[in-house]
């Protein structure tokens, strides 16, 4: 069963929301969705670079009231 994994990285600067995403990604499998909330402005370009490098799919990247939300479909994990 594909799962929705929620990561709340708001207020996290060091080691940062990408680290929180990486930790969630270790446990995820192809088909799962990871939703990350972050306030670190660097997260936007970083998550875009991350999906590209890891061959995952960015389905949503929005910002509202200083909170960045990224929704990622996991497709890039090795079997």
């Amino acid at each position: 069963m594909p799962e929705l994994i929620k990561v709340d990285a708001r207020g996290m600067a060091c080691p940062g929301p990408i680290s929180a995403l990486t930790r969630a990604y270790r446990k995820a499998k192809n088909g799962d969705t990871i939703e990350v909330l972050a306030t670190d402005p660097g997260f936007k370009p970083d998550v875009q670079a991350w999906v590209k490098r890891t061959n995952n799919e960015l389905i949503e990247l929005t910002e509202e009231g200083g909170v960045i939300k990224a929704v990622i479909k996991v497709t890039g994990k090795r079997g």
């Binding site: 600067a13 060091c14 080691p15 940062g16 990408i18 680290s19 990486t22 660097g42 370009p45 970083d46 670079a49 991350w50």
Partner: peptide, 10 residues
């Protein structure tokens, strides 16, 4: 490194 850059902080 697991980070987007050479150190977690840009």
């Amino acid at each position: 490194l697991p980070f987007p850059h050479a150190y977690p902080s840009k």
